[in-house]
Amino acid sequence: MSRRDFVRLTGACAATLAAAGVAPAGGEAGDLDADRRGVLVDLTVCIGCRRCEWACRNENNPPAGELHECDDQSVFRSRRRPTSTQLTVVNRSPGPAGGRPVHVKTQCMHCEHPACASACLVGAMRKTPAGPVIYDASRCIGCRYCMVACPFQYASYEYDNALTPQVKKCQLCGNRTQRGELPACVAICPVEALTYGRRDDLLRIAHERLRSCPDQYIDHVYGEHEAGGTSWLYLSDRPFSELGFPTLGSSSPAALTEAIQHGIFKGFAAPVMLFGLLGAVGKLMHAPKESP
């Protein structure tokens, strides 16, 4: 093999792979709109009526059934998770003796720097600048790596669909919000435990409540920093770890993998150097034997 061949091939390979290395990112925190939306959940207000579950079904998986079916409280006996047909569920954490139970609505948290979007190899999960993390089935290949990556594991999958299964998760009611309506769950909440608005505003409101009613809340806004921040924010009067919220660090799981990944493949230097090194090894180890 001639030297020129070698160089040409090396270059071709490197170029191909380098293209991969600089492909558009899934959404850096810097891309986010200052007006991006979120939802603030005040768990001390939630009464566990499960109307949000109904509204979500009605919006995403109609028919939703009769409204009063939500009154069935027997579902609280086991801890549920969002499913592919029920994108939000309310769980009840029994209170301490004599205390009232706490109801926790769960759904996709719409992370600021979502691990699912970072994980998806075809960009089917995308953090929109306006806040929501959106799933695009037309790109999805069904590998479910997004579900492995999600620190909350709230996404679910249509396993029973043989040909066109989709990852199902809250999309923050893009259709409704574009029309200027509230997300379905927020709109129906009878006690307005859910507040939809600019994430910045919600954080301000949350901290105001913590300041003005310090004995009514624990001093923590869940989602302000968890997993690098989430669009859904929670206030509670009980420690979040007791309510089934995962205890997470303040950086996105994606930050670490992206650091590793981009550290190794930055400018494709490391693979190209390895390639060159191996080529050199091959030449050097060979040379003494070849030379007569």
């Binding site: 492909a23 558009p24 970072s118 590998c143 493949f265």
Partner: peptide, 27 residues
């Protein structure tokens, strides 16, 4: 893969997602 028939999406440059570790593994 749930949508195995869409496997070829991995080869479409406009679908590439460079942050994805799985993308790198796949390629």
């Amino acid at each position: 893969l749930g949508r195995f028939w869409a496997m070829w999406h991995v080869m479409l440059p406009w679908m590439w997602q460079g942050n994805s570790v799985l993308f790198e593994v796949a390629i």
